[in-house]
Amino acid sequence: MNATHTTTQVVRVPGRLVPLATLARLLERLDHSQEPVDADQYLAVVRRLQQLLQDTRADDALHAVLEAFPSAAQVYENLQYRHAGLCRSPLERSLRSELAARQVIERVSGGEPAAG
């Protein structure tokens, strides 16, 4: 078992998830960088992370990594969306987000508010 550090915690990671956790940490750093980030580098990190996430079975260890690295969790959720919707988001927050998005879309399109 290896340890990887987030800004506030240490996450114990099984050896099979070390590459994934390393990329998750790198993505988190890129997302919060105060310096401009090269778009090609960012895209390369995201694509490699996507591949690792697709090749990794979902279990408690993976979810611990995703909990520690929100940027990676968002990539994971985007990959799963077609099959599972907002699988890592609490239902109430997801519903509120959907309703807010609907209101914005209706407002900018000049349409009548939909019943919801």
Rank of each mutant, 00 (worst) to 15 (best):
E35V: 10
R16K: 13
R96P: 00
P36N: 05
E98F: 10
L20N: 07
R96G: 01
D55W: 03
Q34R: 10
A39W: 01
S89A: 10
E98M: 12
L95E: 02
E77Y: 10
E67C: 08
F69W: 07
F69D: 11
E77I: 06
E28R: 03
D38P: 02
Y76H: 12
A73M: 11
P90T: 00
L20A: 13
P19I: 03
Q54V: 02
A3R: 09
I105A: 15
A64T: 05
S94A: 15
D31T: 03
Q34I: 00
R12V: 09
L52R: 10
T6N: 05
G110Q: 02
T7R: 10
Y42G: 03
V10R: 13
H5V: 01
A44M: 09
H83V: 06
Q103W: 00
F69I: 04
D38G: 05
V10C: 13
G111C: 01
Q51L: 15
D40Y: 03
D55H: 12
L26A: 13
V45K: 02
A44L: 07
D55P: 01
E106R: 09
H83R: 13
R48G: 01
R47D: 15
D59T: 04
D31H: 13
S109Q: 07
E92G: 02
E92P: 01
L53C: 08
T8N: 10
S97E: 04
D40M: 11
P14E: 05
L91Y: 06
G111K: 07
V108I: 15
